[in-house]
């Protein structure tokens, strides 16, 4: 927990959010799961919320976090805005795969 883990992804990388079954608390929104976006920034490493939410701090998984940018037209079937519109949100490394690895 004291050492900063080396980020697996770099700014500009295409990443796909894992589409995993979740039984309980998570902060990875359903609407980004299975979708591919671009890493735009690194964020400081932190305990993943799936551990923190259950009070698991000392032994919590400490991972890099990333800002991922998505095209709105990729996320929603009937997006009523314009092609240029985007959405950014943050993901722990636990939830990300290199784009193309995860089959839709």
């Amino acid at each position: 927990m004291t050492t900063t883990p080396t980020p697996r992804f770099q700014v500009g990388d295409q990443v796909t959010v894992r589409d995993a079954t979740t039984m309980f608390h998570t902060r990875t929104q359903g609407y980004v799961r299975g979708h591919t976006g671009t890493v735009t920034e690194h964020r400081p490493a932190w305990i993943v919320p799936e551990d923190e939410a259950f009070g698991i701090i000392e032994n919590g998984r400490y991972t890099p976090f990333y800002v991922v940018r998505f095209k709105q037209t990729d996320l929603w079937p009937d997006y009523t805005g314009f092609e240029v519109d985007t959405l950014e949100t943050e993901c722990s490394e636990l939830w990300l795969e290199p784009a193309g690895k995860e089959k839709k």
Binding site: G30, Y31, R33, K104
Partner: peptide
Amino acid sequence: MASTPTQYDSFQR
């Protein structure tokens, strides 16, 4: 969990 946008839309509705 639904995977395509249309499936997810149906799920969220």
